[in-house]
Design a protein around this nucleic acid. Sequence first.
DNA 1: CTTCAATCGGGTACGCTGTACCCAGTAATA
DNA 2: TATTACTGGGTACAGCGTACCCGATTGAAG
Lengths: 254, 254
Amino acid sequence: MATPQTGAGDPKRSLELLWREFGPQHSKPGPKPKLTVDRVVEAAIRVADREGSCFGMRSVAAELDVGAMTIYRYVPGKRELIDLMVDRLSKLGPDAPDLDRFDWREGLEMVAEGTWQAYGDHPWLLEINQRRPVLGPDSLEGYDFVLAAFEGHDLPDKEINLAVTAVMNIVTGTARQYLIRDSADEEPATAEDEWWHAQAPYLERAVESGRYKNIARFTSEEAWDITGHEAMRYAVDRFLDGLAPRMEASRRAG
Amino acid sequence: MATPQTGAGDPKRSLELLWREFGPQHSKPGPKPKLTVDRVVEAAIRVADREGSCFGMRSVAAELDVGAMTIYRYVPGKRELIDLMVDRLSKLGPDAPDLDRFDWREGLEMVAEGTWQAYGDHPWLLEINQRRPVLGPDSLEGYDFVLAAFEGHDLPDKEINLAVTAVMNIVTGTARQYLIRDSADEEPATAEDEWWHAQAPYLERAVESGRYKNIARFTSEEAWDITGHEAMRYAVDRFLDGLAPRMEASRRAG
DNA sequence: CTTCAATCGGGTACGCTGTACCCAGTAATA
DNA sequence: TATTACTGGGTACAGCGTACCCGATTGAAG
């Protein structure tokens, strides 16, 4: 029942932690900290992968073998912790392709596929209610990475931003419909089958009532047999089809 | 902190309530119920509009001037209640336009605009984590309504479904980025200003560090001056641009 | 008319959550 | 060595959804 939010915590606290200095802290009195902010964030991500978005702070503490309140020494609260988790997952791995070697369309397709896979690996990301985009160092790096796809064109800056956010929102919107699941270990297909099985008799009766004439025309079974990835690709592909003439028109001479 | 989920409650209970009969119940012993399911759902929507998605069951009870547990006589739990609330908001008002009188593009644009406005009126809808689409009578009516836009074309059934869900997911995805707010009475612009004000110094320092070369190239202020509605329209318009040639190719002769 | 049984509203209580607060122990500094 | 800042962690509290129970109410059966 409980699902968290982000971008809602005290922005100053989140930003301080996101952009915290990694340099050597000048020594201070008191015992050495047993943990680090990074270890807390990584443990929280592991727990969220396992328990879903409604993971508890006590579970994160248990993952690190410390008392329940100890993690509050490193993170001011759950919302700020989630801000850090989200930013961390925007980090580009060493396997990030070099977008300069592909054309704009291939680049944006790869970004969409990569984002889709990230949601598949961490479906709890989809349940986070992100109020404002949390721009940490890793998120900025990801955004900077995407912008490389528009190299060699003169599309206005504002339209570049519009196009990038459009692709991201298309992927996120579709992923939310298809990738959210009850618990981390549950296969999406299982829930989908159960759900359709439960709904089928009601839907049949509704269609037979003649109240929904257009839906009734959909006789073929396969009309509804759509995978999430398929839906995402269709939306992204049509969007890129629509973007193509503008990209061609703005191709830089030379 | 608490945000609810839907499509997660017992499907049978939700479906029973969604498709409940409106006919006269044959009289049974016991006192007459003070409320009805519909009154509970409507009160809950009012409360959610006021308090946001983390509204409490006790608030709904208070809205109806009954004890905290009374609403559980009408609804098995909060998740099922949310299922009913979501379906109810899919109901088409009497001001619903007649899609037959517009071409496919105008029709889909109106659907997108209408959905966008619904999210503006009830932003808590965006925070609901809908596991599986809850197909109640009102939702089905809305879906049936959208399908009218594809009249007069021979687009395959499956592609019609792909296109409709794409438009819906584009709107929802964009709305989630721009329309989620902390509390119902808060103006989105206020939060946005505060957020940017807090982030600005960090972003400036980050860009000056030279680590984000592509972002640094965005010198114009207006490149970031994007409204939610603008972003939604850009994404939908480009998608419809991409869909257009397929619609033209499938136009039915006659 | 009386009796029965089902259903009503609503109070109490439980387990869970995030986290405020407090305290004893530790380690660098004066 | 005394001071002081900081540590891990236990206790406790308010809020949540809701299981459970009880007395009151009302239609149906004898």
